[in-house]
Nucleic acid binder design. Structure first.
Lengths: 240, 240
DNA sequence: CTTGGATTGTGATGCGCGTCACAGGGTCGA
DNA sequence: TCGACCCTGTGACGCGCATCACAATCCAAG
């Protein structure tokens, strides 16, 4: 079945084949059926905003397909990207649980399919399904761990170059097509967005990449990045 | 009863009078008894290390009394303090749940009383006590929220002065003795530690304080800080 | 009271990088 | 095919702050 934005919609969680790979979705049969009863499958185009930091939480969004950008935005327009979320992660979880405002903004960067659950339904669901509650704790652990890494990177790095090196290494270990000595990373982000991920300016990113290229450490191949000298990159990233 | 380090030890969670005020500890009777059966009450002197980032998780530490410093440490010795933990918070929770290494280091800055629970016991306890599991999720929400604030502050601030202003305002809203126009904050931290909280150098903190004092925005009174012009401080902190 | 160690206060210096400004390319729609 | 728009590349300039190097205090312990 095709949705408005060209997605192949997964109709039901009960028959979803991707479920086993996903931390949260792999629930007991009973919990899964309860979840199926309260969730709404929604499709979003690229650039849609799921929620904005500061809003009172309406509920959670389980990302089924597509990618979502999580970011903080300052009043002067400056933006900081916390991470790009992959399918399987639950968004708005922390705020929905605590009732405090969403702490960041979630915006799709692809066409996305999402399972939305209203706050009161979700809280009831958790009370009635202990195993789901445990999964939620696991999800939150991962989120916390992730945020801690960002704090480390932002707070302990000595230079923008160091932060960029760390980011590239992280990508190569997460998304690389192979575990080879020279990993390739598909990269759909602009220099501006990369700058927002490491808290620096666009020009600096451009200059850093130019430098890395000159020193034969990385190389562009269309929209994929080839890391030619992982050791050198590690040296740049080290300490912190 | 007095412990080695001059603490008034709370013998049992079942009779602990502070329980109701604390997010995690306020469990159902059944859960509380189960918890009582697996916890170990431990006392630490000032400067004791509960766990170090990178260690495989041994279990959780519920802070009953005292204060604990959570920090990241880079290989070059540079340190970043994430927060000072107050009683009631559960430490090492995320790592214990996920099995991943502790993401930061926890060190007492007071004599502390702690309830320690071994990892396997704690996980079993959670499986058998759904309400505790929910409390854990709440705790993790708070931790995540907290980490997000730190990311915002580190990543979106334009200057060290801005970060310091934010920190002082946060303290004044959390620890101030009164809600008055000129809040007082007890402050046991050195300039060096404050620098480590906002990711800057000690000298910068000294200079910033000198500046604030000259402009009559803050004022020292022994070990308490008096905020004389909260509006000005807010102006300095704004944006971000 | 004295001494030694931690804490605070200040000047000088230099580099990183944010910011402004503008010049190519690449893409898409009219 | 042309213009509008977004992305990338590069130079110039200047501020913020890390760093080094001491001096001035403060405090606890002998």
């Amino acid at each position: 079945m095709l949705s408005p934005y060209g997605l192949h919609i997964i109709e039901s969680c009960l028959t979803c084949k991707l479920r086993a790979d996903r931390t949260f979705c792999d629930l007991s049969t009973a919990a899964l059926q309860a979840f199926e009863g309260i969730k709404h499958a929604i499709s979003y185009p690229e650039g849609a905003v799921l929620f904005i930091e500061g809003q009172t939480p309406r509920g959670i969004f389980v990302l089924c397909q597509g990618q979502v950008k999580l970011s903080f935005c300052a009043r002067d327009g400056k933006t900081l990207i916390l991470k790009i979320v992959e399918p399987g992660e639950v968004l708005g979880l922390s705020a929905t649980l605590s009732g405090k405002p969403y702490e960041l903004t979630a915006e799709t960067i692809d066409p996305c399919q999402v399972s939305f659950v209203k706050r009161e339904n979700f809280l009831r669901f958790l009370k009635e399904n202990p195993d789901a509650c445990f999964k939620v704790a696991e999800q939150l652990s991962n989120k916390y761990d992730n945020a801690c890494h960002e704090v480390r990177s932002l707070g302990l790095s000595h230079s923008a170059g160091q932060k960029l090196a760390k980011l590239l290494l992280e990508w190569s270990s997460r998304h690389a097509e192979s575990k080879k000595v020279e990993p390739r990373v598909r990269l759909a982000l602009t220099h501006d967005e990369i700058a927002q991920m490491i808290g620096t300016s666009r020009e600096t990113v451009t200059r850093l990449f130019a430098n890395l290229k000159k020193r034969q450490i990385v190389q562009w191949d269309g929209s994929t990045l080839l890391i030619r000298n992982k050791a050198a990159l590690k040296a740049l990233a080290s300490n912190g």
